[in-house]
Amino acid sequence: NEDWLCNKCGVQNFKRREKCFKCGVPKS
C-alpha cells in the first residue's frame, strides 16, 4: 500500500493519483 496523504487537506489518495481528489493539490 503506497497510498499518499495530501499535504494540504490530509485526505488519503490512491497511489495512481497525481493530484488530490478532494482539493486538487499535486502530489509532492
Rank of each mutant, 00 (worst) to 15 (best):
N13Q: 04
C20L: 01
R16C: 04
V25P: 03
K8V: 04
G24Y: 11
F14M: 09
E2D: 13
F14L: 06
F21Q: 10
G24L: 07
C9F: 01
V11E: 13
L5G: 11
L5K: 13
N13C: 02
N7Y: 10
D3S: 10
K22A: 03
L5Y: 14
R17G: 13
G10W: 12
N1F: 09
D3K: 04
E2N: 14
E18N: 08
L5R: 07
C6P: 04
C6F: 02
K8R: 10
V11M: 13
G10M: 13
Q12F: 05
E2V: 03
K22L: 00
D3L: 05
F21T: 12
D3P: 01
W4T: 04
Q12R: 12
V25W: 08
N7K: 06
K15Y: 11
K27C: 14
C23A: 03
G24E: 08
V25C: 10
L5N: 15
N13D: 13
C6A: 01
K15M: 04
K22C: 01
K15Q: 12
C20D: 04
F21C: 11
N7H: 14
P26S: 07
R17E: 11
K27R: 10
R16Q: 08
W4C: 03
C6W: 04
Q12C: 04
K8Q: 14
C20T: 06
K19A: 11
D3R: 00
Q12T: 12
D3E: 08
D3V: 05
K19N: 15
V25D: 13
K8E: 09
K19Q: 08
C20Q: 01
K22R: 06
R17A: 14
L5I: 15
K8T: 12
P26W: 06
F21D: 08
V11W: 08
K19W: 06
C6R: 05
N1C: 10
K8S: 09
F21G: 09
C20E: 02
R16S: 14
G10I: 12
Q12D: 08
R17W: 09
K27L: 11
L5M: 07
F14E: 13
K8F: 05
G24M: 03
C23P: 02
W4I: 03
N7T: 13
V25E: 13
C23D: 02
N7D: 13
C6V: 02
V25R: 06
G24P: 00
Q12G: 10
F21M: 10
S28W: 06
V11G: 09
L5T: 13
C9L: 02
G24H: 05
V25Y: 08
G24S: 06
P26C: 03
K19I: 12
C6L: 02
K15E: 12
F21E: 10
L5C: 08
K8C: 04
R17F: 15
F14T: 13
N7C: 06
E18L: 05
N7G: 09
K19E: 11
C23F: 03
C20R: 00
K15R: 08
L5W: 03
N7P: 15
R17D: 03
P26M: 04
V11N: 13
C20K: 00
N1R: 07
G10V: 05
K19P: 06
K22D: 05
N7V: 08
K19L: 08
K8A: 14
P26A: 12
L5H: 15
W4M: 09
C9G: 03
N1T: 09
C9Y: 00
N1Y: 01
E2Q: 12
G10D: 10
V11C: 00
K8H: 14
N13S: 03
K15I: 15
D3W: 08
K8I: 04
G10L: 14
C9M: 04
C20M: 02
W4D: 07
D3Y: 06
E2G: 07
N1W: 02
R17T: 14
E18K: 04
G10C: 10
C23G: 01
K15W: 11
K15A: 12
N7M: 03
D3C: 02
C23Y: 00
E18W: 00
E18I: 11
K27S: 11
L5Q: 15
L5S: 11
F14Q: 11
N13M: 04
N7W: 10
F21K: 05
K22V: 01
C9H: 05
D3Q: 06
W4S: 06
C6G: 03
N13T: 02
K15S: 12
R17M: 08
N13E: 04
R16P: 15
C6N: 00
V11R: 09
V25I: 08
K22W: 00
C23R: 00
G24T: 05
K22M: 02
C6H: 03
C9K: 00
R17Q: 10
F21L: 06
G10K: 12
C23Q: 00
R17V: 12
K27Q: 11
W4P: 04
N1G: 07
F14P: 05
E2S: 14
K8G: 11
R16T: 15
W4R: 02
C6K: 01
K19T: 13
K19M: 11
G10T: 15
F14W: 10
G24V: 01
W4F: 10
R16K: 14
N13L: 03
G24D: 00
F21P: 03
C6Q: 11
E2I: 08
W4A: 04
N7R: 12
K8W: 09
K22P: 01
D3F: 09
F14R: 11
N1S: 07
